[in-house]
């Protein structure tokens, strides 16, 4: 990224040693990576609102108790306190559930983003992936809301390996970042040679008939969809778009031109998130038929993450169906 900081050389190669075990949730991967990465970065502090075990920063608390600040159940104060701490040169990681980041979004807007503070907001429990806690805890609006704040970088990694690399990258980037982790065990979908780069999407599987663009837990499901489509004789390209803002327009334009249609997939409302970001990027130069897989502007409910993904249309089969629709629209043009 053009605006990124001066320590990027440390981000790509230095994959933290603790991370990457398959089956780790993204929050665990984040929490473990943070311990590794903060070892030689004394300016990194963590702020928690009484859910360290839920966000993964209990690892940090154990490793560096003197750098861990318990803020109590008071997210608005926590968010603006982080802005103030950053004003003194520290690099605060503010951690809570995604839905409580929404609660404190005005503090993130004024005391962090408008002040251009070097604060990292790391949100666990995004989307329907939250599961049984139900709709009150399932943030389906956070990508839209944080994406609309000027200067805010928005990231949603796909698997434990990428989570660790993204944690390194946002630590090295100078400026405000909102990053989604995840609650449920995450599938490893990326190979050991994968390299996350802030602001860049990655083609995980090549294809020529349609491009599936996904972020977070939906990347694994997009890969499932590509397999289903393959069995139907359709060649689907899969792009992991882990940085939602700034979005990789160059890659999207190439995919639109080479495959002629796009399906986006996200564990988020279809309004304002990844799908909207992709559409905004393409409509200016390379409009093409697009389909949006996501939650259809409704609230979720209690249930296991997989059950909810099935009920609300987020699994591979729905992505594959959307791809069929997009391809039909492409041919009809």
């Amino acid at each position: 990224m053009a605006a990124s900081g001066n320590r990027n050389e440390a981000s790509a190669g230095g994959a933290p040693s603790l991370i990457g075990s398959s089956g780790d949730s993204l929050r665990e991967a984040f929490g473990k990576a943070l311990v590794d990465l903060a070892r030689n970065r004394p300016e990194v502090v963590v702020l928690d609102a009484d859910i360290a075990g839920g966000t993964g920063v209990h690892h940090f608390r154990k490793a560096y108790p003197e750098r861990f600040y318990q803020c109590g159940i008071a997210e608005q104060n926590m968010m603006a306190v982080a802005g103030g701490m950053a004003a003194t040169g520290l690099v605060p990681f503010v951690t809570t559930f995604a839905v409580f980041c929404l609660r404190a979004i005005e503090q993130a807007r004024l005391s962090i983003a408008y002040c251009r503070r070097n604060v990292k907001i790391v949100a666990s429990h995004p989307g329907l992936d939250v599961g049984p806690d139900g709709a009150s805890a399932q943030a389906l609006e956070d990508l839209a809301a944080f994406r609309a704040i000027p200067g805010m970088v928005v990231v949603s990694p796909a698997d434990p390996l990428e989570m660790a690399q993204a944690t390194a990258a946002i630590m090295n980037y100078r400026g405000p970042v909102y990053m989604r982790t995840g609650r449920s065990p995450a599938r490893r979908v990326l190979g050991d040679d994968y390299r996350f780069e802030l602001g860049r999407g990655r083609v995980l599987r090549d294809g020529s008939d349609v491009t599936l663009v996904a972020c977070g837990v939906e990347v694994a499901r997009a890969l499932d969809a590509a397999q289903l489509l393959d069995a139907q004789g359709i060649s689907a390209r899969v792009v992991n778009m882990a940085t939602i803002k700034p979005i990789d327009t160059e890659l999207l334009v190439r995919c639109a031109e080479e495959t002629g249609c796009i399906v986006t997939a996200e564990d988020h409302n279809i309004f304002g998130g990844l799908g909207s970001a992709v559409a905004e990027a393409l409509v200016q130069t390379s409009p093409c038929p697009m389909e949006f897989v996501g939650v259809q502007d409704v609230f979720g409910e209690s249930g296991e993450p997989d059950e909810l993904a099935e009920k609300y249309g987020l699994t591979g089969i729905f992505i594959a169906d959307a791809a069929q629709t997009a391809i039909k629209r492409k041919i009809a043009r």
Binding site: Y69, V81, A87, T88, G89
Partner: peptide
């Protein structure tokens, strides 16, 4: 917000 930010500054200085 300014109150919380000032608290963050005070804490950051002490840290």
């Amino acid at each position: 917000q300014g109150f919380s930010a000032a608290i963050g500054i005070a804490l950051g200085l002490r840290h």
